[in-house]
């Protein structure tokens, strides 16, 4: 007993001060929110970045402007290596979550858009949000980084957010993975078991758009076609801070 108490003293406190204090620093090589410098882009004439993108996240829209869809992006940085004009670079910004699918598309240097749940659900869930996590073809990276939120470092419980075992005890689902055909029925059944009103959170490129697996007939290319999504958290996998910030934004617990 005395040894475990001494160990507790020695291990110290590691819970981050966020959101009262600034967020912990991201690693120097971390690839966060992409920034596009449109002036340097050669426009329609060049498609180097589009051709190298493994998940088709980049495209020139009508005006020739380059747009990057974070919902598809795997944050591999291949586009930054092939572009001779250094049009794209990945910043250290971890705040990536969005409430609308369109807000995930980046055209130039833009700050993250505000997102917030509608008043009724925000009032209901602001002090207590219970989520059921469903992995539907996820590779266990998004799942692990969601699980990490339960450790003392992030201590999700202090915000009243908790992951529960039964969907009947939950206020919503946090879905990961491109939704394999084999998990589709189970996902829909789990969603149906959550009492109204409820929310759905798509975590990771796979859940948002199918990611790498968009073209695989063994998946349904994400949950967009299956469920109404309230929060999109992009990344492959998203950093735990990205997930945390997204959840807090949704409940209006942090300013952006």
């Amino acid at each position: 007993m005395i040894r475990s108490l001494l160990a507790r003293y020695h291990q110290g406190s590691h819970t981050i001060g966020y959101p009262a204090e600034p967020a912990p620093e991201m690693p120097a090589r971390y690839q966060g929110r992409p920034v596009i410098n449109q002036q340097n882009c050669r426009g329609m004439a060049c498609s180097l970045c589009q051709d190298c993108c493994p998940s088709a996240a980049l495209q020139h829209i009508d005006s020739g402007e380059l747009a990057l869809d974070m919902g598809r992006c795997l944050f591999c940085g291949e586009c930054t290596r092939v572009c001779p004009e250094e049009v794209i670079h990945f910043s250290n910004e971890f705040r990536l979550a969005a409430g609308q699918r369109d807000d995930l598309t980046i055209r130039a240097m833009e700050p993250p858009v505000e997102l917030r749940l509608d008043t009724l659900r925000r009032k209901m869930f602001r002090r207590s949000l219970k989520l059921r996590q469903v992995s539907a073809g996820g590779c266990n990276a998004c799942e692990s980084d969601t699980n990490v939120l339960g450790t003392i470092v992030y201590d999700l419980g202090r915000f009243g957010i908790e992951f529960v075992a039964s969907p009947r005890h939950a206020d919503g689902l946090l879905v990961t993975g491109p939704v394999s055909i084999n998990m589709k029925e189970a996902l829909l059944a789990t969603y149906a078991a959550v009492p109204e009103p409820k929310i759905v959170i798509a975590t990771g490129a796979c859940a948002i758009s199918g990611g790498l697996f968009t073209t695989h007939p063994e998946t349904t290319a994400g949950i967009e076609q299956l469920l109404p999504v309230d929060l999109y958290i992009p990344g492959c996998p998203p950093h735990p801070m990205t997930i945390l910030e997204g959840l807090l934004q949704l409940l209006d617990l942090v300013p952006r």
């Binding site: 190298c52 493994p54 591999c76 291949e78 992995s135 539907a136 073809g137 996820g138 993975g177 491109p178 394999s180 055909i181 084999n182 998990m183 189970a186 790498l212 697996f213 073209t215 695989h216 007939p217 063994e218 998946t219």
Partner: peptide
């Protein structure tokens, strides 16, 4: 089998690339 995403099938007859 619930997690099956068809990885091996997608790699049959492909070129070794970034994907």
């Amino acid at each position: 089998g619930y997690q099956h995403r068809g990885i091996e099938k997608a790699l049959g007859n492909s070129r070794p690339d970034k994907r």
